[in-house]
Computed example of a mutant assay.
Amino acid sequence: MPKISTEDKHLTVLNLFTTDVPENQDKLVQEMRKIVDAATYEGWMSSTVHAGVDSPGTANFIQWRSGEDLEERYKGDEFNHRTLPVFGEITTSIKLLQNEVAFTQEHPSLGGSIEIGPHRDDYTAIAVFPVLKENQEELIDALGPGQGFFLETPGFRSHVVLRGLRARGLEGSFVVSYSQWESKEAYDAYKAVPQDQKPASRVAAEGRCRAVVAGIPDINTYRVVHTRSAGE
């Protein structure tokens, strides 16, 4: 199963698709599974397909050996004349985000390793934060090391911060937060904590984030429905 680590220096691509109805989400998942199961691209390492929960849509968490390998994929006839047109018909937005893993933290019960796949049954939250380039590192620090309180939060499993490098379908710099929870109830309870009951470290981290975020974060929750790695 794919693992997420700051020690791996490969490219992490997060493809986010939104749609307007659950039926189109099902079509998106079907099309993404076809692509993942047939993938033999040079430099492709793994793909993990997520189905939207709070809002219809999908996320594909993809690991590539390098940006050069990904660009070869983007230049191909299949991508430009089949993949993009098919997704264009059933989506309301497409964001293709290239990133590197900047920070990870996991609950001690995970044994120091973050895995992604349907075998784990994680409830996953993905948030994309717009930020000015000069404030990107501050936001990464606030979202990463500044969120140590997660380890004391019931239901928390892991948290990954991705440094945005470049994107299609999204202007400007960005940072991505990818977190795993044991259930929707645990995540919703974390989000619903009243301001006066939050630990001081959480209040401080959220204040740092608000000070540099340059727009409304794009947030959705997901369940992993399919994964495959090269060689499988």
Rank of each mutant, 00 (worst) to 15 (best):
M1D: 09
P2N: 06
K3Y: 12
E7H: 11
D8H: 11
H10L: 11
L11R: 03
L11P: 08
V13K: 07
T18R: 12
T18E: 15
Q30H: 14
E31R: 10
E31L: 14
E31S: 11
K34Q: 13
V36C: 08
D37H: 14
T40S: 14
W44I: 04
S46L: 05
S47E: 07
T48I: 14
G52Q: 01
V53Y: 01
D54E: 13
D54C: 10
S55D: 15
T58F: 00
A59G: 14
N60Y: 01
N60V: 15
Q63E: 14
L70Y: 01
E71G: 03
E72V: 12
E72K: 12
E72P: 05
H81S: 13
H81A: 08
R82K: 14
T83C: 07
V86I: 08
F87D: 05
E89M: 09
T91V: 04
T91D: 02
T92H: 00
K95F: 06
N99A: 11
E100M: 12
A102W: 05
A102H: 06
Q105L: 12
G111N: 07
G112Y: 01
G112M: 07
E115F: 14
E115G: 14
E115T: 13
I116K: 02
G117H: 04
H119F: 09
H119G: 13
H119A: 14
R120H: 13
D121P: 06
D122G: 08
D122P: 08
Y123M: 00
T124C: 12
A125G: 11
P130N: 02
V131C: 10
V131D: 09
E134G: 11
E134T: 14
N135Y: 10
N135F: 11
L139V: 10
D141R: 13
A142T: 00
G144M: 03
G146K: 00
G146D: 09
G146M: 09
F149A: 03
E152V: 01
T153Q: 07
G155I: 00
G155M: 05
H159W: 01
V161P: 04
R163N: 11
L165K: 06
L165M: 10
R168S: 06
E171I: 06
V175K: 00
V175Y: 01
S177R: 00
S179A: 15
W181Y: 05
W181K: 03
E182W: 03
E185T: 10
A192R: 04
A192C: 05
P194T: 01
P194H: 02
D196S: 07
K198I: 03
A200M: 13
S201K: 02
S201M: 05
V203Q: 13
V203L: 13
A204R: 03
G207I: 05
R208S: 12
V212E: 09
G215M: 02
G215W: 00
P217T: 03
P217S: 06
D218C: 02
D218S: 13
N220R: 00
V224H: 05
V224K: 07
H226T: 07
H226F: 12
R228S: 13
R228W: 06
S229Y: 02
A230L: 15
A230S: 14
E232G: 12
